[in-house]
Structure formats: structure tokens, C-alpha cells
Design a protein around this nucleic acid. Sequence first.
DNA 1: CGGATTTGACCGGCGC
DNA 2: GCGCCGGTCAAATCCG
Length: 453
Amino acid sequence: MEEMDFFSEKNRPTVQEDFQVKDEHEMKFGVSGSIKSEPETGLQLSFCVTKTKEKQESQQLKALQLELYRLNEENRKLRSMLDHISNNYSALHAQIRLVMNQRALNDPQQQDQRNDMSSPAFSIHQFTNPSPAGTLDIEHHSHPNKETVEPSLGNCIEHISKDSEQDVVQMGSKRPFSENSPDQTSQSCVGSKFPKGEQAKNTDNVLEVPCRKARVSVRARSDAPLITDGCQWRKYGQKMAKGNPCPRAYYRCTMSTGCPVRKQVQRSAEDKTILITTYEGNHNHPLPPAAITMANTTSAAATMLLSGSTTSKETLTHSNVYQSLLPYTSTIATLSASAPFPTITLDLTQNPNPNPNPKAMQFLRSAHPHPPVPHTQFPLPLYSCARPFGHPNQTVQRHSSMVETLTAAISTDPNLTAALASAISSFISAPVTNRNSPADAQFSQSSTTFSTN
DNA sequence: CGGATTTGACCGGCGC
DNA sequence: GCGCCGGTCAAATCCG
């Protein structure tokens, strides 16, 4: 950065300052000092006024020109900074691809998947999941042309996040539901859950990306014990969490045997009227309409959290849900990448819009028309991978549209956008460590939290 | 009686 | 190695 010579500026008043000084002088002594000191005729007076006006205008013009020049300079500096960042990004991306190619060549077990690794996103996915099985995620097939469309690091992380969400399915061999889970064939094995010996076989030259599971946390003000999200849940545990007098309840989805989705419900320690619900995993079964929209939004939030993708507003205006989300966009407040799971928090405890969008209200009513128990109506959808009844093929399309939806919803708040960009960039630029290092399986990401409220 | 909930035990990760 | 803590399991209990 250039050093600025403040002294030269100090010693030489700017045109603007000049103008102000003169202005003050004129206000003190009338239209012009010369007029007061030397009485003149009316003609001379008008001539002097005209001359002074012209002088003022020319000085104003100079001031504006200076301002324009200053802004241009600032613009130029910002452009150069942007170029610099873009170059760094390109270099980093090239390095990642290089390492991936090397890894592909070194690992004979991946040979049969070489074709699929043409996508950088998938390659990263393989990277972060040193699975001996090396099974493919169904969703990866849904984006065969990712590289040509958008070969971005964001996509890589998006896939990592999807994978991470699906880690929940393979919690262990004891799980009865994991045996017949429809998602099982689509699951890549989870590094952290594998026996250490097994892991060691597959961790050579493997990079660790600091992400295991994505979580979506929803804060809502409610006296009810649960929020209504359209799914059926069964409580399987309750624990006292440290630092909170209220117990944390654990639920799993019971709409299908083997559904890996879990949620935790806990009241806020600071404000017991706030109910914090944390969702994890993807449904592996059709969902009722009320649950579909819910599922989509939190999953989009989770994906957005890690993908860092940007979306033009043009696409958003086509999304109905976007309209319903608008009243809540400013409530999406917190992104935490702290260990062990990156979590995005949708804070619905604020009331951002006194006149919420009618569509949002409609959605609120439709989420659960006749709740059997006093639940809080939950305005946001959950889990994009959920399949609606009878429309299994809509999953991918809905997923991407919802990602766009939430990403854009967040982008409508400039402060949040800036904070989010900062958080995501810090997330992306987190140190990439080698699994052979002692800190291999550790998610050493520092916490990134921000708030717009 | 079957499904849901409760609750103490257990397990694995992590820090010291 | 030990203790703490979060998360899960599973037997006991509850409830419609």
C-alpha cells in the first residue's frame, strides 16, 4: 500500500476548504468584503455578485472533480485487490486439482472410478472420504457436468457437506436401520467412524477438509416442547448439557425405518422461552408436503453454509419459497464452523417484518393445520434430500432451487452477506492438513460466528 | 398390548 | 491414563 503524505495535504488546504473559508468570510461581512469597505453603485454590486457566483461555481466544480478523482482512485485500488484475490483463488484451485490428480494416480483402488473423477467436486469428495468401498453418492451423478458448469471450490465443499450430512447413516454396525437403508449404497464410508487400522490403509496422501457433518439449528420462541416440522419423531434420549439448566432431548425420525435424520431440542439457557432445534442428516423416505418445504430450507442452509456459492437474484424471483422466506431473511443470523460440526443457525426469535408476506403466513398455516399437541408452527423447510410422495425425481431440482433460494435470501441483507462471505472465506481457507499428522482427524476449525442483529 | 417415553449405562472423542 | 462431555442404547416404565 502506498504511504500517504498527510503533511502536504495539511499544509495546502483543498479547494473545498478554500471555498468554505471564503464562504464563512462572506457570511460575516456580507456579500463581499470589498462591497462593505467601499460603497459601490448598484451596477457594480450586481457585477460583483455575478462574479462571485461564477467563482463559487468553478470552485464547486473543482471540488467535485477532486472527489471524482479520489473515488476513481479508490475504485482502482479495490479492483486491483479483487484481481489479487481472484488470482490467489485460481492458484489455489489449480493446486487442489493437481493434488487430486496425483492422488488418483497413486491410489489403485480408485482406478475404477477415474471416469467419475473428472469432476473436481467429486474428486474432493473422494478425497475426504477414504472409503475402501468408494461407493458413489447418488447426488454426485446428478451433476455430471459440474466441472464445465462451475468448477469452483464452493462446489467441492458443497459435495463434502452433502457427504457429511449422510455420515449420520453410518453411525455404526450396530444400527439396525443402517442395514436396509435405501441410502446405504449411496453412502461413502465415514473416515472418523472407521476402525483406525482400516482408516490407516486409506489415508495415505489424503487431505483432511475440516468438515464432518453439517447441522442446521433453528431458534424459535415457543412455550411448546417441540416445533412442528411435519415429520414424526421418537425421543430416544435426554441429557443435561453443560452450561444449560434445561435438558437436551434427542429425537430421531420415525417416518421410515432407517431414516438417519435426528434432531436435538433444547431451551436456551439465556432465554427459556426460546426453543433451539438442531437438525442433522437427510431423510431417506417420502415426506408429507408440510415437511418437504421444511426439509428443503434447512438443507439449503446447510449446503449454503459450506458451498459458499452465489446466486443471482434473477433466479430467485422465480422461486415461490423465496417470497415466503423474505420476512425471515434477516433472522438468519449465525454461522458457526466450530468443532465438531459446522452449524448454521436460523434465528426466528426476532420479528424482522411487522407485516409478513402473505405467502409466508399461508405457509405457516399449512405447515400443520391441526396439530395434535401444542407445537410451535415452524415456517422453514428442512432437508433438501427429502423426497415428496410420488415425486422421487424432483429431488435434485428442488435441492438446487432451494440452495438458490436460501443463498439469495441471505444475500438480500447486505450486512449479512458481508459477514457470510467473510465466514465462508475463512472456512474455505482453513488449513488443510495431512491425515498422517497427529491432528489428522481433528476438526481444528476455529469458530466463526456473526450476527446481523 | 404395543408403541412411546424415561433414564441410567455405555461408548467414543477430546483435553489435560 | 483419566476424567469430562456429548451422544446413543436399551431395559424399565408409562400410556392410550
